[in-house]
Nucleic acid binder design. Structure first.
Lengths: 219, 219
DNA sequence: AATAATATACGTGTTTTACGTAGTTTTACA
DNA sequence: TGTAAAACTACGTAAAACACGTATATTATT
């Protein structure tokens, strides 16, 4: 069994340190690098090519899912293991679509992490129980009701809609947004309505949650 | 220098394992226990008394801040070091009020963690840069504008208000809430208005963020 | 040149929010 | 036990936001 080379991507140093410490016990796994953002990762990849990238979903500026997409197209040989606090359908769906080889919630045990790394490094996929449950549930739902749940929602929004979404979830009122963008309140309303429809959301409350889940705003 | 006994409280096993691994290198620090919830902690405290409890803010059922309060009154000798993803004023304020001896964001380095533990164990307080900056900013603001920012906001809400807040941030509309509780829509509106005023919030968007920050809802 | 996508905006009716007022229960405590 | 404070209930009115349909000018795309 050859050595498995890993790069960690997580913006919390303590998490990186922690995982590193965990993995240091395993003889066949070696952390060859650790970075806290997408940019640093791509920089590092110029000199170091790992077998697996351990990716946190929530990263500053560019989300783990974006990173995964780029890795899939530019470094198809590198395996991607996603690590996330969040286990919602949207996340998992988009992660899988982005080409990850595995998805783990952050409350996994050390052994599960090791197993996931080994599975993935041997070309198989690894989704922990919580995740596969969610996938199953989603699958059943879509089979029953025929709604193909999550398309790649965010990509469906236009530039303007994204811009307005941002202002909305920052707490600005329609009037403020209208003034800021020199457009009519009615236009803002229209955009908002369209956003809601495209994202299949129910109201402001869901919109805010969506924005946080998708890293559009910080708490 | 005698040995510092620590209990970890965090619902993510990987974080616990990580911190444990980190601390295992330090000769004078020993993790004598690790739990994933408040209940388990209080159970453990029947047999094991640590010098420091390393507390995550976001815990299931009972928040780290609640735990800290109870520890402060029932185990005044145990030091409390709070560890959190969130660095907002509210959190810090309530944490300090609950009696913590230090507050660390989760993106600290290993060395900072060690320093914090040592400082706290010797009876001093430790707040990392990010945190003390926030405190300073808040202090300046309140000095300038005289508004004493964060009272213990959540405690100011009545039972009914909390109940309604919960429904609101789950995405229910006023009508639904009214029906659910067998009261008039106007009453729901009144409660909502009062909640906003008490919490000093600007609109639904802020309300949702507040709820997430304060662990009232999960994402 | 025809078509689709985007950004703009209005009409109408419903719902929510802001702010003030106020009656009825509960709760606290002197 | 009596009374004051707090909590829960609810309405009026005006402004803002939302849902849904419709519509026009501008920009790609093909």
């Amino acid at each position: 069994m050859s050595e498995i080379k890993i790069i960690l991507v997580d913006d919390h140093q303590i998490v990186r340190d922690g995982i590193k410490a965990l993995l240091s016990d395993s003889l066949n796994i070696k952390v060859i690098g650790e970075v806290k953002s997408a940019y640093e990762l791509f920089d590092l990849l110029k000199t170091q090519i790992p077998d697996i990238v351990l990716l946190d979903v929530s990263l500053p500026t560019m989300s783990g899912i974006e990173v995964s997409k780029i890795l899939s197209s530019d470094f198809p040989k590198i395996k991607k293991l996603m690590l996330s606090m969040y286990t919602s359908e949207d996340f998992i769906f988009n992660a899988i679509k982005s080409g990850v080889n595995g998805y783990l919630p952050k409350n996994i045990t050390r052994n599960e992490l090791l197993q996931a790394i080994n599975e993935v490094s041997e070309g198989r996929e690894y989704f922990s129980k919580t995740i596969s449950d969610t996938i199953l549930k989603s699958y059943l739902k879509s089979a029953k009701y025929g709604n193909n749940v999550s398309d790649d929602k965010l990509c469906k929004l236009t530039k303007r809609e994204n811009e307005i979404l941002l202002y909305v979830v920052e707490g600005l009122h329609n009037k403020d947004i209208a003034e800021k963008l020199y457009i009519s309140i009615r236009t803002v309303e229209t955009h908002k309505t369209n956003i809601m429809h495209k994202l299949n959301l129910n109201g402001t409350v869901d919109l805010v949650k969506f924005a946080i889940k998708n890293n559009i705003i910080e708490l």
